[in-house]
Nucleic acid binder design. Structure first.
Lengths: 240, 240
DNA sequence: CTTCATACGTGCGCCGCCGCACATTGTGCT
DNA sequence: AGCACAATGTGCGGCGGCGCACGTATGAAG
């Protein structure tokens, strides 16, 4: 289905921040799609066909090892875009993009993207600034994986997801979170139990509710703040 | 000192791959600099002033926590460039760039870089492709930090350094490696001891020699291969 | 209302890594 | 040559996380 309402665009901050002229040029190339939980947007090493601008969904960038173990390297919501390899010139990436929270996105074909990108306008600047923010997120994930406990990383993960979510409840089992964080399911059970005991979250059978966001922010490691500040700085127009 | 010999350029693969026209335009903006071990090219949050194209040096991208703990997020040699935030539009980055192996580089001021970048020529394409390769390296660092042992990570780190080095010996104490990997110095002693016992490396007081590269490649985790393949694929002109 | 798969809880032994303390061995400097 | 210091070796207790096994609860399907 083609994009019918301008509101669709506004829901993605990168698109919403475009000046009218570029907005008009890009509009016809966007297609509204609904994505379901667990769906794959691209696979490791496979040619990317589209760019996805999330509006209400959340996408997780995952790397899966040969033995099946996996770990998340970043998360993308309506502040960003999925498929940066397309405009960075790689065409493929050695990771996967999986729908972590069902919802909608705007899909753009590769060909018009390239045409628009080489104009070196605001669209290109936005995409590149976003990419730098994503690099910070990935970097901080590396640091956090090295130096912090599961409980700290879970807090960081919950806050990053909450920032990209319109609600306080996310549908997500501990098993799924364990796959994202690259840890045992039991490890998540333990860490989530502690956060619940502190009254910061509440969870039950695949439903996690953020009860005390301030409290979470107070206990999370600095990694969250570093990433958040960098997103705010680089995407100030695009992330209110 | 200004660049006097074209050979200087050839030593950096990104510059060497430029077509003659762009090469001529960029040449006057490059300055040859010699960098010493431990020197900082930029600090966290500080305005970047220059882009550095390593020729014989190796640069480490590090993140340092508030409590002083640090971890490497990537390494750059003559296949790449330091200071991507300059052309990605961020101007600053929340990490540091430290000289890991003394040597030379070509330095380019921010202003002419921007002018050249917006021409959307081969220079821009090269820089962006390189950035994607770097993203893969950072991502794989995150995964490796999560899932692999110090010994595996040390192997990966040695191979990545060896790829960017002209020799088999690198000047590097175990203490420094520990800071890069974000682990204890004793952990590096133990892991290095095992690699030495297997006859893969030899080390003594700040001098590490790669004895059996094939052997190292056979024991390293898949993370190294993933990064290497992606660099080869994206920078095939630039990394022989 | 029962059934049943799915999600979560818990205990146990094990291992890798940490923090600390201290011994030992090179290396450069005078 | 001798000294001081930097680099490495080693041991020990502790902890966080792993793999495994099995128990418990809850929501949906019939």
């Amino acid at each position: 289905m083609p994009v019918q309402h301008n509101n669709d665009l506004i829901e993605n901050h990168l698109l919403a921040a475009l000046p009218g002229e570029e907005y008009e040029r890009i509009l016809p190339h966007l297609e509204h799609v609904t994505l379901s939980l667990g769906q794959s947007l691209y696979e490791s090493g496979k040619q990317l066909k589209h760019l996805y601008f999330p509006t209400t969904c959340i996408i997780s960038l995952l790397y899966t090892m040969e033995n099946g173990a996996s770990a998340e390297i970043g998360v993308v919501g309506n502040e960003g875009v999925v498929g940066i390899a397309l405009f960075m010139g790689g065409d493929t990436a050695p990771n996967r993009a999986i729908v972590q929270s069902a919802g909608d996105a705007l899909k753009m074909k590769a060909a018009p993207l390239r045409g628009e990108f080489v104009r070196a306008g605001e669209f290109q600047l936005s995409l590149l600034r976003y990419t730098q923010a994503l690099i910070t997120q990935i970097s901080q994930t590396a640091v956090c994986n090295r130096l912090h406990t599961i409980e700290q990383q879970l807090s960081r993960w919950l806050l990053l997801s909450h920032d990209r979510l319109q609600a306080d409840e996310l549908k997500m089992t501990q098993e799924m979170i364990a796959n994202m964080l690259g840890v045992r399911r039991e490890g998540v059970t333990y860490a989530a139990g502690r956060l619940q005991a502190e009254g910061l979250i509440k969870y039950a059978r695949g439903h996690i509710t953020i009860l005390d966001r301030k409290g979470l922010e107070a206990t999370v490691c600095e990694c969250y703040r570093v990433v958040k500040d960098e997103y705010d700085r680089l995407l100030s127009q695009a992330m209110p």
